[in-house]
Every structure is written in structure tokens, then in C-alpha cells.
């Protein structure tokens, strides 16, 4: 299996605060990899560093064999790395379809095909395509955020807390969609606080604590690990 994403010993600072203290991990092509951990462990910071919104002070990030640590965020999408940000961050004043068009901003060739693909994955979005983003329900907004990221036809999709703020039934739905996307060939890096759900779909998992990776293994191994059970699975 070839590594599509390789993060090597990155250190990220917010001013004087050392937020990420030497994190390394890999995502192989076709995998679902999850990064779990408590609030404030540095999961979102790690993702934002990979997608270029934040810069690592040291360490390396390679995507498809090329270093991307110094590439501006808007150029990273073009290379096939899309992020579904924490809190969804859809464009609330734009219509569903316009949101999706923004997702295809760097994709000049097959916007129509990409739209068809996303609407096939999320029929709900098609029904609401003329609606303003801000009027969607939380679950629909999460679907829109995921659909928007898919519009660039990414090789790797990074999802940041897709279950945040959603009712349990919607969480299950979102995870079904993630499993589906994976089945259709999208490689996924998933950041979650909902460790149980995340571990149930993941091929491999990393546990983050205060800016470091403390444990790693297959999804099953970690789900069975006493430490993880105690800290994250409520038992």
C-alpha cells in the first residue's frame, strides 16, 4: 500500500504556545484513518496544518510523494486534498448549489459531472439545491459540507468532527455516508471525538493527547485496548 499522506514530526505553534509537539502519521491509499482524542488534543490543528491553513514550524508533510508544507492552502485543494472543516463552515448566505460550485472552484473541467455525482450521493441536497445554506438543518449542512469537498474530486478527504452537534440518528447516517464514500474509493482521514463511531469504521487509528500521538493501531485493536476504553469509550 502506498502512502498518500505522510506527516513527519510536525511542530505547530500558536504564538508562544507549542500546540503540536512532533506528530507523525501516514494515510495509505484507500484507507480510512482516524485521529481520535479529547477536546484540545490538537486534532483540528493537525488537520489545518495539513490543509495549509496553519504552518508547521518544523517537520514535513508529503502528499502523493510531494512536499506540501510550504504550499498555500488554496493550491493544496488543486492537488487533490479536500478538507471538511470543523463546524461545517458552509457558506450560509449562498444557495446549496452555489456552495457546491465553490467546492469545484479549482475543477474547471467536469463541474456538471461532479454535481451529478454529489447529488447522487446526497439526494437531499438535490431537492434543496436552490435553498440558502443557512436554512438547512445541521445534518443537511454536514452533508453539504461533505458534498462541497467532494466537488473537487479529492484523492484524500479530511473530515473534522463530522458528528459534532448532530443527533445520534444523524451521526449514524453521516458515518454510513463516510463508509459509502470509502467503498467508492475515496481515501479518508477522519478526526473525531466520537471515538466509538470513528473506530468502528476506521482501518487504522491514532490517539492524540496534548499535542502528541500516544497510541496507534488498527481500529479493532484500539477499540479493544483498555486504555482507549477507559479514556474515550466510557468504560
Amino acid at each position: 500500500m502506498t502512502n498518500i499522506l505522510k506527516v513527519e514530526d510536525i511542530h505547530v505553534y500558536y504564538g508562544a504556545i507549542h500546540a503540536i509537539k512532533g506528530v507523525s502519521f501516514q494515510v495509505g491509499e484507500g484507507e480510512i484513518v482516524t485521529l481520535i482524542g479529547a477536546n484540545g488534543a490538537g486534532k483540528t490543528t493537525t488537520l489545518q496544518t495539513v490543509s495549509g491553513l496553519l504552518r508547521a514550524r518544523s517537520g514535513g508533510i508529503e502528499f502523493c510523494g510531494e512536499p506540501i508544507g510550504r504550499v498555500p492552502a488554496h493550491k493544496i485543494v488543486e492537488r487533490g486534498l479536500a478538507q471538511v472543516p470543523e463546524g461545517r463552515r458552509i457558506f450560509l448566505r449562498m444557495t446549496v448549489q452555489e456552495n457546491l460550485e465553490m467546492g469545484a472552484y479549482t475543477n474547471n473541467r467536469d463541474v456538471a459531472d461532479a454535481l451529478d455525482y454529489v447529488y447522487a450521493q446526497f439526494p437531499r441536497l438535490k431537492e434543496r439545491r436552490r435553498q440558502i445554506g443557512g436554512t438547512l438543518s445541521g445534518g443537511e449542512q454536514q452533508m453539504l459540507a461533505m458534498g462541497r469537498a467532494l466537488m473537487s474530486r479529492p484523492k484524500l478527504m479530511m473530515l473534522d468532527e463530522p458528528s459534532m452537534g448532530l443527533a445520534p440518528i444523524l451521526v449514524e447516517q453521516i458515518f454510513e455516508i463516510i463508509a459509502n464514500l470509502h467503498k467508492n474509493g475515496t481515501t479518508i482521514l477522519l478526526v473525531e471525538q466520537n471515538a466509538q463511531m470513528a473506530l468502528s469504521v476506521a482501518d487504522r487509528a491514532y490517539v492524540m493527547e496534548t499535542g502528541k500521538i500516544t497510541l496507534s493501531g488498527t481500529g479493532k485493536e484500539l477499540a479493544a485496548s483498555e486504555e482507549v476504553k477507559k479514556a474515550y469509550l466510557g468504560g
Binding site: 491553513l53 498555500p72 488554496h74 488543486e78 472543516p85 448566505r93 449562498m94 465553490m102 472552484y105
Partner: peptide
């Protein structure tokens, strides 16, 4: 227009706009 929509996207959320590949 594409540029016009990108402007609206930037006006709402520059970070998310960057994640779309928009050069802010």
C-alpha cells in the same frame, strides 16, 4: 460569475474559501 461568487464566499468565511481553492 465565478469570481463574483468567490467574493461572496470570501466575505462569509475566508478560511473555508481557501479550502475551496479560492485565492483570497
Amino acid at each position: 460569475t465565478k469570481m463574483g461568487k468567490a467574493m461572496r464566499a470570501c466575505s462569509e468565511d475566508k478560511g473555508a474559501a481557501q479550502l475551496m481553492g479560492i485565492n483570497v
